[in-house]
């Protein structure tokens, strides 16, 4: 028995060793390093000099960071509710026993397997002020056109449209597999009891799909707070809407690798981590009120 114990310990450690080692070097230690850098002054490749909480104090009085956080929050509060709702509606439609489900599912999923850089470039072309197809269609419909890319009041909506378009396929698949696991008999029983479609949706569909819905909300929330690719491709520093479109991760990238004020960049990273943890905690707490685990 003792020998088995020893051998289990040896095998266990041997099996986890490669992953554990790499995770320590690539992920865990970097978190510590980043935290340390955020307390340092670091210019270029010079050695970090410890300066305490100076970066954090600067960050809280820095209008640029505040603006970037507001932009990102606004973007997130646009994309998550609209995107999740559209995904849910699409999933419900596909779950009504219609013909050609596989065909629809495939087409809706294509944006998920497309490189975000390419996608952003295509949307930038379609949103082009003078020659873009979207403004042309708006004009043809007799609506007023918008300066989608360079107007500070519009840019976040433009980015949100791209974000929503890109996430529906993924979320829909997860919600659809949640919907498919709901037994048909529940609806039949509700029908017998005389419950209408709306009542059925809120009393059967929503509670039973809530674990998948919760997963979808949490993951899109976190990924929206980290929006980068579309901002990088569309909101360059020469864009007049730059200030109103810059996201927090883009700001982080700029300080880390362009402006090369790496200590400050690390501070922005840590603040983002705190915001994400805060939102996740709040959502985890609130899930008890509405998520139904069987």
């Amino acid at each position: 028995m003792k020998r088995k114990h020893l051998s289990d310990n040896l095998w266990g450690f041997a099996f986890i060793a490669p992953s554990l080692l790499l995770i320590c070097v690539l992920n865990l230690w970097p978190v510590v390093e980043n935290l340390y850098y955020s307390l340092c002054k670091m210019k270029g490749f010079a050695k970090p000099v410890f300066i305490g909480f100076t970066n954090y104090i600067t960050a809280f009085s820095d209008g640029e960071i505040g603006q970037a956080f507001l932009n990102t929050l606004f973007y997130t509060l646009l994309t998550v509710p609209i995107g999740v709702l559209l995904s849910l509606v699409t999933a419900c439609f596909l779950n009504t026993g219609i013909k050609g489900k596989g065909f629809f599912r495939t087409l809706y999923y294509i944006p998920v397997v497309s490189a975000p850089v390419a996608v952003a470039m295509v949307w930038k072309w379609m949103f082009n002020d003078e020659y873009g197809i979207i403004n042309y269609i708006l004009k043809a419909l007799g609506l007023s056109t918008l300066n989608w890319i360079a107007d500070g009041n519009v840019i976040l909506f433009t980015l949100a449209i791209i974000g929503i378009w890109g996430m529906i396929g993924y979320n829909m698949i997860i919600l659809l597999s949640g919907l498919q696991s709901i037994p048909k008999s529940y609806y039949e029983a509700a029908e017998v009891d005389g419950a209408g479609a709306v009542k059925q949706f809120f009393s059967i569909t929503i509670p039973l799909v809530s674990p998948a819905l919760f997963f979808v909300i949490i993951t899109t929330f976190i990924s929206s707070l980290q929006v980068f690719d579309s901002v990088y491709m569309i909101v360059s520093e020469t864009n007049p809407a730059f200030q109103n479109g810059e996201s927090i991760v883009y700001l982080f990238y700029r300080y880390m690798f362009n402006v090369s004020n790496k200590g400050y960049g690390a501070t922005i990273g840590t603040l983002l981590l705190l915001v994400i943890l805060l939102f996740t905690c709040v959502q985890m707490k609130s899930q008890r009120k509405w998520v139904l685990y069987q």
Binding site: I16, S19, L20, I23, L26, N27, L28, W29, P30, V31, E33, N34, Y37, I222, L225, Q226, V249, F252, Y253, M256, K262, G265, A266, G269, T270, L272, L273, I276, L277, T280
Partner: peptide
């Protein structure tokens, strides 16, 4: 310990 990185935005790791 292995799960911790799942909760951290990947940008944090990138400079190290």
């Amino acid at each position: 310990l292995c799960l911790i990185p799942m909760m951290v935005p990947s940008q944090i790791f990138i400079y190290p």
